[in-house]
Nucleic acid binder design. Structure first.
Lengths: 146, 146
DNA sequence: TATGAAAAATCTAGGTG
DNA sequence: CACCTAGATTTTTCATA
């Protein structure tokens, strides 16, 4: 990972579908050289995925919330994690140090949909004890990488 | 946005660099038809960006933390937001309803780096009052879309 | 890492239901 | 309007130096 690799990553962060020919011109390196550097970063696991970002608002998912969750016993943890991985409304699920066990980042259509999610989906999972929901008013920044 | 568009989005979510020819075979539609549908989703703003996901661990950013922040007065808000947008360690910054004003998602090298961030970067911003930091032990899931 | 030929992917035009 | 086919153009891959 030298400075040229960093430049390539920077370009891919801006537009993962940028053609190699275009990157090649910006980086001042031949197309096969750029291609080989990308291949190596994929192979070494530095680049894990190419993703598309979709406007949630346009698809009517107007509500973003963070939910803290406590799990009763250790045997309830694995089923909980599996359910979180499965639920499409759950964008993120982090295991925490501190008062709460997990933090979820959840998208919903509206408050009604969120209520439904918390009571029907989340609280119905065995072992889910206390939850604490925080509503997001707006997002100043939302990136996946530095 | 019909079911075909949803299938295309699903494929792009898995791999934003998937060639149109490959998508065309899976969707059972000609290449120009797939291309046109993608163009329209870009134009209408449903697709906002193509991004690359980088393994933070591989670049030694081993620590992920969530930081709640309170801002003293309304006139301090705008400079705070601008700083958040600028700082590369801050991946996300959400304006919240409730006890705290903002929630940050922050990546750091280690606890020392985090301490440095909180004391030198965050608390040095005018108006930043109370902060509450929660360390992530592990992440079960981290998606940008449903 | 660069070059250039071959292969693959994309774009464009013109046409159909 | 969404789709197709076919030819032109661009991009990517691969072999070689």
């Amino acid at each position: 990972m030298d400075s040229t690799d960093k430049k390539i990553l920077y370009l891919l962060k801006q537009n993962a579908r940028m053609p190699l020919t275009e990157m090649s011109k910006i980086i001042h390196l031949s197309v096969p050289a750029v291609s080989e550097r990308i291949r190596k970063m994929e192979e070494s696991g530095i680049i894990t995925k190419y993703e598309v970002r979709i406007d949630r608002d346009k698809l009517n998912y107007k509500l973003l919330a963070f939910i803290f969750v406590n799990i009763e016993t250790t045997k309830d943890i694995e089923p909980f994690r599996e359910t979180m991985a499965m639920l499409p409304a759950v964008l993120e699920c982090h295991h925490l140090a501190g008062e709460y066990d997990y933090l979820l980042k959840v998208v919903c259509l509206d408050t009604q949909d969120l209520e439904q999610f918390i009571s029907s989906e989340l609280k119905s999972i065995h072992g889910v004890q206390k939850t604490n929901t925080i509503i997001t008013l707006s997002s100043i920044k939302e990136e996946i990488n530095q």
